[in-house]
Design a protein around this nucleic acid. Structure first.
Length: 469
DNA sequence: TCTGGGGTCCTAGGACCC
DNA sequence: TCTGGGGTCCTAGGACCC
């Protein structure tokens, strides 16, 4: 916690709905609800006119329709929202070089970063007034709520208190008095589950929370949450504003209008999703190691399965093959309402020496990628991998070792390779027990029986590359 | 009429290593 | 020689946020 109110939190008011009202004058003054329009849709954002009728974010669309039948229901134009967001973030960066966007409509700004500006309450107040006016002007009508305080916690709470279209500068020294009577849910990070646990031990307000010692909260909520909550209840928050936060995962998911049991159809969906994730990785210049398949059954029970590859990849084909392998091991009885594909373990480099393009396409003709088919590799000097039609595993010579891309599910994998330089062509076929996803080895490709039982000497020499894990 | 999609962070258990 | 302790990686799930 600082001695000056120099952490600013800005929140654009109901951006999605506001952009729609701005662009379509007929919607002004009317309830506008943006979200999933289908049977299983939920409300993403709604205008304040709709909130009067009890419509809320994350509410089922059917319920929103029942509460507010005369509203305009829209599915959203994300490019327009992003454009508005970009203008706002640009304006915030004029305020300070240290801007931390949290989403399209929210950001922290460190007013104390690298400037010798006047941070007295009066000066800050004036600055924020100008900022809010400018934002409305450059976005042609959007409004923002702003809180400024000595910490992220208090700045966020302050902007929340003055929504919509307001501002609040919390004078340093008054934080505890402001916090004391509030419900614990006002603290960002305290959701329904945590609030219920606290309620059961007789804690409803932040003041009551502050009476409890840290050890008790740690026992109740775990180490990280307990410790952080004990501090936040005392307005003790020194989290810095961080400008550049790197993405940790990229994912795509979809809820079907009706539950799906047809495996072939799911395979098609998963393939498309994995390729879309790969495309997003690629355009972001990223690659990832862990592929996750997410499924949700008809009864909303949700599971994830993941596999970690030997090295990061951005290859749509490899991602699709990995996700497909995970799907193959999944029970579909009862039907799925959702599937999703994600990648984590992101690196900002691409291991193209391992998985270089062009790639053969095992699903030639059924995908959106141009199919070149397996290319016969030149014999020397380094022929690279040779693919068999239908291969589910790929590998490349890398340094002193061989890296296997993926060994998947119950399918029989068939692959062939040539050793570097002139030499015989080795062809192998193997079942799933012969290869594990991401298998790495420092030696030549081995026959299936060798792969399943590497010698002790081999195992120890494999250490550096993590073979056989 | 049951409950979106894109994320982040945390926890816990098991494998494995030293 | 019946049993350790720490650290890391991986997988799965849960809470939470906008």
């Amino acid at each position: 916690m600082r001695s000056t109110a120099s952490v600013l939190h800005l929140d654009l008011d109901a951006v999605f709905a506001s952009v729609e009202q701005r662009d379509k004058p007929s919607l002004r003054g009317r309830p506008v609800i943006v979200g999933g329009i289908g049977q299983r849709g939920v409300v993403s954002t709604c205008s304040y006119e709709a909130r009067v009728h009890g419509v809320r974010s994350a509410m089922r669309m059917a319920e929103a329709r029942a509460r507010c039948p005369h509203a305009a229901f829209l599915s959203g134009r994300f490019d327009a929202y992003r454009e508005a967001s970009t203008l706002v973030m640009r304006r915030l960066r004029e305020e300070s070089p240290l801007v931390e966007p949290l989403s399209l409509d929210e950001a922290y700004v460190d007013l104390a970063a690298g400037s010798d500006d006047d941070l007295s309450p009066d000066a800050v107040l004036e600055r924020v007034e100008t900022l809010r006016r400018d934002i409305t002007e450059i976005t042609e009508g959007l409004t923002a709520s702003v809180g400024v305080a000595s910490s992220k916690l208090m700045a966020k709470i302050a902007s929340e208190l003055r929504k919509p279209d307001g501002m609040f500068v919390v004078a340093p020294g008054t934080e505890l008095a402001l916090l004391e009577p509030m419900q614990v849910r006002a603290i960002p990070g305290v959701g329904p589950a945590t609030a219920e646990r606290l309620r059961r031990i007789g804690v409803g307000t932040v003041g009551e929370l502050r009476q409890r010692d840290e050890d008790e909260l740690v026992r109740l909520l775990g180490s990280a949450s307990g410790r952080s909550l004990a501090r936040l209840a005392r307005a003790d928050d020194d989290r810095p504003v961080v400008a550049e936060r790197e993405a940790k995962s990229i994912s795509v998911e979809d809820t079907f209008p009706d539950d799906v049991t047809d495996r072939a159809r799911l395979e098609g969906v998963v393939d498309t999703m994995a390729r879309r994730v790969g495309g997003r990785l690629r355009s972001a210049g990223l690659s990832g190691r862990t592929v996750t398949l997410k499924i949700r059954y008809h009864d909303f029970e949700t599971h994830t399965r993941s596999t970690t590859l030997a090295g990061p990849t951005d290859s749509p084909t490899l991602l699709a093959a990995s996700a497909q392998g995970l799907l193959a091991a999944t029970d579909l009885s009862g039907g799925l309402r959702l599937v999703g594909v994600g990648v984590s373990g992101l690196a900002d480099w691409v291991q193209d020496d391992l998985f270089a393009e062009p790639e053969p396409d095992p699903d030639a003709g059924t995908t959106d990628e141009p199919s070149t088919g397996p290319e016969p590799a030149p014999r020397s000097p380094d022929p690279g991998p040779v693919w068999s039609p239908g291969a589910d595993v790929h590998h490349r010579h890398h340094g002193d070792g061989w890296v296997w891309g993926a060994g998947l599910g119950r399918v029989t994998v068939r692959f062939e390779t040539r050793l570097t330089g002139p030499g015989p062509v080795h062809t192998f076929a193997a079942g799933d027990d012969a290869l594990t996803p991401g298998h790495t080895g420092p030696t030549r490709p081995r026959r299936p029986d060798e792969l399943t039982a590497p010698s002790a000497a081999e195992r120890s020499s494999d250490e550096g590359l993590g073979a056989g894990r």
